[in-house]
């Protein structure tokens, strides 16, 4: 689904990302871990064509992301609060994203109804703008908005951060459902090794922009990761 070749990003001659080859097949739940500055967000930004690569390219479902915009209809993402429109209510925001992705109001209503328990009664009909919601609730809105319009690729940067424990558990089952039953490719990054081993069938460790580990998840993965980061 997503093929990265020879990709590198430099800022003032300092290499922040350098990936020789990375292939993510369709329907995989792909986890990216690494300490701060490892290049996780840089990679996601490159995937979304928000920054230009210094070298190399990313092919998303046959489309070179910095050559054409045809990857946009089947790709969605929630990276940070710059993906939210602060002066809208959550409902307005969902409908706005829905309209951009060719979904009418009824379609969006059906979709968000499925996530009622994920919202935990704190999102819909709250009479608040997004900018007045707490960080965790903003994140819930962003994540669900990324599910609108049946995307084939979903990119979530640190989806577990700021979420309460119940919501973290619900999010894990949502992601599993997407990849296992609907064949959606989900890319997430996280600092929480436990969550990421729970939910991802493949985990890649970045260190200063370079891939240092590429693991199929099994019983030993968590231990291996903990050992890696302990040193």
């Amino acid at each position: 689904m997503i093929i990265t070749t020879n990709l590198s990003k430099k800022y003032n001659n300092k290499v922040v990302l350098d990936i020789e080859h990375l292939e993510i097949p369709k329907g995989q739940s792909f986890g990216l871990v690494g300490n701060n500055g490892a290049g996780k967000t840089t990679y996601f930004s490159l995937l979304l064509d928000l920054i230009q690569p210094s070298r190399g390219e990313i092919i998303n479902n046959g489309v070179g992301v910095d050559k054409s915009e045809d990857w946009k209809p089947f790709t969605s993402a929630f990276i940070d609060e710059t993906f939210l429109i602060g002066y809208l209510t959550p409902e307005e925001y969902f409908y706005f994203i829905g309209e951009l992705r060719g979904q009418n109001k009824a379609d969006v209503d059906v979709l968000i109804a499925q996530y009622e328990d994920f919202f935990h009664g704190e999102i819909l009909n709250q009479k608040k703008y997004l900018r007045d919601l707490s960080k965790g609730n903003q994140k819930k809105v962003g994540i669900v908005a990324a599910l609108i319009g049946t995307p084939e690729v979903i990119i979530l940067d640190e989806p577990f951060a700021n979420l309460d424990p119940s919501t973290q558990i619900r999010l894990k089952s949502i992601i599993k459902g997407l990849t296992e039953t609907q064949g959606v490719t989900v890319l997430i990054s996280s600092h929480d090794l436990l969550h990421v081993t729970d939910v991802c069938n493949r985990i890649v460790v970045l260190e200063k922009g370079v891939i240092v580990k590429d693991l199929e998840t099994n019983q030993e993965t968590l231990k291996e990761l903990e050992l890696h980061f302990a040193n």
Binding site: D49, L50, K72, T82, L84, I85, L100
Partner: peptide, 12 residues
């Protein structure tokens, strides 16, 4: 400007 990345990653 506050949500320009959103607009740029959507099918706009």
């Amino acid at each position: 400007s506050a949500y320009y990345p959103l607009l740029m990653s959507q099918n706009i």
